[in-house]
């Protein structure tokens, strides 16, 4: 009996089990205190699609051996730049996905360049990637504070009407805000299913999965899993680490574009600072470790992590109506889960 329970726990993985149970418990509470459940489910689906690609960005980074990409803000900034440029030059025709596609294409060269440079850095500091990554992310975000003020963007929707620099949030309502959510979207009762958004995330997963099964993808995973083994098979380990970093950075860029699309706003300045943590936490909860990850970890982890956060917020609001307290509770819950996930860094066996 005890053994079978043990086996079940092992099969599901403790983190997944705990977060899953917590998720169920909060869902039940939500139903019991009569929260509008249709809205909550819609929200879960939306946030699942919204954060998915950001979590997916962890896959190439972990596979190539540099560990979870805490420097995701680099990619996020590339994505923001791509979006700003797409709007600035009015590349927002319906054919370009109202700017969605053009933003992705424009962010690509930025991501390649910065991913390459960052990859070079990572190759110099093998062994302490995670710490360096976190601080690289922080530095880049701080540096970009200056850039957002000084870059010569002119478009009225992104400049402050008076004063200098870009707005803190740029509305995407007139461009590609929510286009994916609405694409083939439908409602069942009170639940809205953002078909396009979810399909896009799953398509990205499929692309990454297919890539991981190509010669290049396998080469990259081997370089990450055992550099000596890879070298003995004639593989350039450093090159593969750079490729993995570039891919992760680009996925980060795409991830933030999808995020902004679904959110309806582009967030500048300090917003990218903490975006890496939910992404890392999601995949760790999903069962990934710092050296091994599967696509299923991304999908399961993002769903559990974002699902839990989505339900926890209104439940907390209801239980602790005091405005400030519930916000604090949300922060505690979110960071608590992240902290828990980071202690689970060993992953599933």
């Amino acid at each position: 009996m005890n053994e079978t329970i043990n086996n079940i726990v092992k099969r599901i993985g403790l983190p997944r089990l705990i977060i899953g149970l917590l998720f169920l418990a909060t869902c039940l509470t939500a139903v019991m205190i009569d929260l509008p459940f249709g809205l909550i489910v819609s929200d879960i689906l939306r946030r699942f699609g919204m954060f998915g690609v950001l979590s997916l960005a962890m896959v190439p980074a972990i596979q190539c051996g540099t560990g979870p990409n805490f420097a995701l803000p680099i990619g996020i900034i590339c994505g923001i730049l791509g979006t700003l440029i797409a709007i600035e030059f009015n590349l927002t025709s319906p054919l370009l996905g109202y700017g969605f596609i053009s933003a992705i294409i424009i962010s690509l060269p930025f991501a390649v360049l910065s991913g390459w440079l960052y990859g070079l850095l990572l190759n110099k500091i093998k062994g302490s990637e995670m710490l360096v990554a976190t601080y690289t992310g922080f530095s880049i975000v701080s540096f970009m504070q200056i850039a957002w003020v000084t870059l010569p963007f002119k478009h009225p929707e992104m400049r402050w009407p008076i004063g200098i620099g870009l707005r803190v949030t740029v509305s995407l309502a007139s461009t590609f805000g929510e286009v994916l959510n609405k694409l083939w979207g439908f409602s069942i009762g009170k639940v809205y299913f953002p078909t396009g958004l979810i399909l896009f995330f799953l398509a990205c997963c499929a692309v990454v999965w297919v890539y991981s099964r190509t010669k290049a993808g396998i080469e990259m995973s081997a370089a990450g899993a055992n550099p000596k083994f890879a070298a003995a098979s004639g593989i350039n380990v450093d090159k593969n680490r750079i490729i993995g970093t570039i891919l992760s950075t680009f996925l980060g860029a795409v991830g933030v574009i999808v995020y902004s699309l679904s959110f309806g706003f582009l967030q500048l300045y300090l917003a990218p600072l903490y975006m890496a943590f939910p992404a890392v936490a999601a995949v760790l909860i999903g069962g990934a470790s710092t050296s091994k990850i599967k696509i299923s970890h991304v999908i399961i982890g993002t769903f559990l992590f974002q699902g839990l956060l989505t339900v926890a917020m209104p439940v907390a609001n209801e239980l602790v109506p005091e405005g400030n307290l519930s916000e604090m509770l949300r922060v505690i819950v979110q960071n608590g889960i992240i902290l828990y996930a980071l202690t689970r860094i060993g992953g599933e066996s």
Partner: peptide, 28 residues
């Protein structure tokens, strides 16, 4: 080459037997 250091150089310990066997041939 069959390395004398089988766990260090010779194997991808967390990959399948079959991938280990075909890996180098696939790559080269």
């Amino acid at each position: 080459f069959v390395s004398e250091d089988r766990r260090g150089v010779g194997l991808l310990l967390d990959s399948s037997i079959e991938l280990n066997i075909v890996f180098t041939t696939m790559q080269t």
